[in-house]
């Protein structure tokens, strides 16, 4: 393994759970307001994971008061305080960009249950 790979490996965050496309997640984001820092929660569906290693980022989509909102987070960023996976959904592709065109009930995903 070369030195840059090793360096990146040491900088990766290992405390976050593994996420995949379709997962419903709760992202705890650190927000700075002047001197104060607080936590904001962004909850939605992961519609894609881009890149790998230190450059990886993921897009979370949610519907906020009838308007679709997407936010892209760098996966290893310190601004992500905590990441919770609420449920895994059944999806057949890596990028769920088709969800943008689906409104209301059509945009639902089917859950994969781990029990049984």
């Amino acid at each position: 393994m070369n030195i840059i790979d090793k360096l990146e490996q040491s900088l990766l965050r290992k405390d976050l759970p593994k996420i995949g496309p379709g997962d419903t997640v709760k992202v705890h984001v650190k927000v700075r307001e002047g001197e104060k820092e607080r936590i904001q929660i962004f909850q939605g569906t992961v519609i894609g994971i881009k890149g790998g290693g230190m450059r990886a980022s993921f897009t979370v989509r949610k519907i906020a008061s009838g308007v679709g909102v997407e936010r892209i987070f760098p996966l290893n960023s310190p601004i992500v305080d905590k990441l919770e996976v609420l449920r895994h959904n059944k999806v057949r592709r890596a990028k769920l960009y088709f969800l943008r065109a689906k409104l209301g009930k059509a945009g639902r995903l089917k859950e994969i249950r781990q029990d049984a």
Partner: peptide
Amino acid sequence: KLGMTQIFNEQGQVVPVTVIQ
């Protein structure tokens, strides 16, 4: 010069860096 990568600074911003042995 070994190559380039990126790291995060204290503000959580991405900083492009060159790694030098």
